[in-house]
Design a protein around this nucleic acid. Structure first.
Length: 605
RNA sequence: GGGGUCGUAGCUCAGCUGGUUAGAGCGCCGGCCUGUCACGCCGGAGGUCGCGAGUUCGAGCCUCGUCGGCCCCGCCA
């Protein structure tokens, strides 16, 4: 950038006048040759030969080549020298076939070009802070500060247009199935459990706050009680938790609830919706019904409740073989009620000693006791634990896991759930390292039969795995009071390639069952009234059996479009610190605002 | 709350073991150029090495702190 570049230059800005666009740039084809056109767009590139000038004109549909030839119009040609990147221009002219040898097969519009008879310069541009091509990936902070420019990049433009097609298809699909789009409040009340809330102080109720919804859960259930029967909403949700590549503080859910249905009905509907969405966005259309897997099996084989089933490297348990082992670390884990389990990498030979050491160190950062490995080399086992295993044990281990020469077996010992989760993460990492994850495969999967409750170590009480309105399986109902942790929920998650797309459940519609669940959760009657009174009221006035699901629209679009960050399918996303470099949100409130709200900030040490 | 990584020209990045005047490509500015499409050729401008302390004769490079981007753990019913 130079000072000269900051000047707008002597170029004259024209008015739009009565000019109106006749066509979009990206749609022009050989069939349009001969037409008189009026195009409007941004200067995406300029090749000025002095005697003849080529302009790449871009709008949201694509790029078409514009030719400014003094033989066509000396005036337009003369003005073309002053054009710069991202100037906005309108051009009038005739669409012609490009001379045979100058066609550009890389461009959908490469067979044609517009020969300009008249040009209007509608707007100029400062020099760009970063190039707008799809190749150079500028620093995210710079991109977000100038999001209006970032969004001009063809990839982001087409991502947002594709997202629009998906949401349109979803609305049309749900409308066709008789669903009613109903809006629910953004200013609502905080509910306990779940994520941290974003709070909004109420001016007219000093000392009181609203919470932004983490999801419209209670409202959609109430709509069922009200008899709407089938509800949907494409709705913003807010969770004040730390961000990830696939997580934003505000995100969009496709929220669905329906009455007089069971789990299978919701799942079938969801599959149809995903088919419609995938079709509209141009992603491979999944086959239905999707495969199913019970939660217990997912944990046992994949160490997670959202397994990526595109590759093997499954978990194998070895606890029974280690009960008597001389390898104390492994043996004692079993003795204490934990497990020993492993993952076999058949092609583990390609992992260097250094990579193995890095894996061991990495697993330790996950909070696991440690990671042991056994490398089956030509001349015997190489392993920190090798000396502890006799011939018989080695044979059994090989038999159980399939370990053979060239392979590496990874072992983790510890409390069951934790060991499995660590292995689940190790599995993903190995999948990447060994390039085992196939591109172009789309494994949709239902995970079912979640436990209803789990023991929360921090809170020292049971908490809901899904949420406290999830119905237990009918046959498990009576165990709610006696063995609550054995009760399964009528809950289901849909997973794509190891990413959770969404989840739902059949809800509790009977006040007596809901009360039992609150009891199991240790929420007393006063708290119940205070926190969920309105839902309990609603359930007591004739609630239909109902259930639903919520799907993460941003994540869906991200996966469907092959993006690795949710930010690239959201027009105005936030950084990892939940800030927006463009608008500079969040910002400090001024004194008058604080006074009016009756707030005072206390500086945290 | 924690771990990792990055921050040098508008952008992407190089910069050795701490040592003279901090480089490249692209972009930008000026000139030339009638079939380019990553146009080409000639010339030029452009730097708070994120910021602040410290060590040192000397810091882009070492130390500490801090700010910011990204990835991950915890967290996200």
């Amino acid at each position: 950038m130079t000072t000269a570049g900051e000047q707008q230059g002597p170029i004259r800005i024209d008015t739009l006048g009565d000019w109106r666009r006749s066509d979009y740039c990206g749609a022009l084809r050989a069939s349009d040759i001969g037409r008189e056109l009026l195009l409007m767009g941004w200067v995406a590139g300029r090749r000025d030969h002095g005697g003849i000038v080529f302009i790449d004109l871009r709008d949201r549909t694509g790029i078409v080549q514009i030719v400014l030839d003094p033989d066509d119009s000396p005036v337009a040609h003369e003005r073309a020298h002053a054009l710069r990147s991202e100037y906005v221009v309108a051009v009038k002219g005739k669409l012609t076939a490009r001379p045979e040898e100058t066609r550009n097969p890389a461009l959908p519009t490469g067979e044609v070009e517009l020969r300009v008879s008249e040009i209007r310069v509608l707007s100029t541009s400062r020099v760009l802070p970063f190039p707008l091509d799809d190749e150079t990936e500028a620093n995210e902070a710079v991109r977000l500060k100038h999001r209006f420019l970032d969004l001009r990049r063809p990839r982001l433009t087409s991502n947002l247009m594709a997202r629009h097609r998906a949401t349109t298809a979803v609305r049309s699909y749900l409308d066709g199935k008789g669903f009613i789009d109903v809006e629910t409040p953004i200013l609502t009340r905080s509910t306990p459990e779940g994520a941290r809330d974003y709070l909004v102080p109420s001016r007219v109720n000093p000392g009181m706050v609203y919470a932004l919804p983490q999801s419209p859960q209670l409202f959609k259930q109430i709509l069922m009680v009200s008899g709407f029967d089938r509800y949907y909403q494409i709705v913003r949700c807010f969770r004040d938790e730390d961000l990830r590549a696939d997580r934003q503080p505000e995100f969009t859910q496709i929220d669905i609830e329906m009455s007089f249905v069971g789990q299978e009905d919701v799942m079938a509907l969801t599959e149809g919706l995903l088919v419609a969405g995938a079709k509209a966005i141009g992603a491979p259309v999944p086959e239905t019904p999707f495969p199913r897997m019970q939660y217990d099996e997912a944990m046992r084989r994949f160490g997670t409740d959202r397994p990526d089933t595109r590759f093997g490297l499954e978990i194998v348990e070895l606890s029974d073989l280690m009960r008597e082992s001389k390898a104390r670390i492994l043996q004692s884990a079993v003795e204490r009620g934990g497990i020993v389990a492993g993952i076999l990498a058949e092609e583990g030979k390609q992992l260097s000693r250094r990579e193995l050491d890095e894996l061991v160190a990495w697993v330790q950062t996950l909070g696991a006791g440690g990671l042991a490995w056994i490398r089956a080399a030509e001349d015997g086992w190489q392993s920190p634990l090798a000396k502890f295993f006799d011939e018989g044990e080695r044979e059994k281990i090989c038999e159980r896991t399939g370990l053979r020469t060239g392979g590496v077996l990874f072992l983790v010992a510890g409390p069951r759930t934790h060991a499995l989760q660590v292995l689940g993460q190790l599995r993903l990492r190995l999948g990447h390292m060994l390039k085992r994850i196939p591109e172009g495969q789309w494994n949709y999967l239902w995970v079912t039969d979640f436990p209803l409750l789990e023991y929360n170590l921090e809170a020292k009480r049971l908490s809901a795995v899904h949420h406290p309105f999830t119905a237990p399986k009918d046959e498990d109902l009576e165990r709610l009071g006696t063995e609550p942790e054995s009760v399964k929920a009528q809950a289901y998650d849909v997973v794509l390639n190891g990413t959770e797309l969404g989840g739902g459940s059949i809800r509790i519609h009977r006040p007596d069952v809901q009360a039992k669940l609150f009891e199991a959760l240790g929420i007393d009657e006063t708290q119940q009234r205070q926190q969920f009174g309105f839902l309990l009221d609603a359930l007591s006035f004739g609630a239909p059996p109902h259930g639903g699901i919520a799907l993460g629209l941003d994540r869906l679009c991200m996966l469907w479009l092959g993006e690795s960050s949710i930010r690239d399918v959201i027009a105005f996303p936030k950084t990892q610190k939940a800030s927006d470099p463009m608008s500079e949100a969040p910002s400090a409130p001024n004194a008058a605002q604080l006074r009016e709200l009756g707030l005072r900030f206390v500086v945290r040490e």
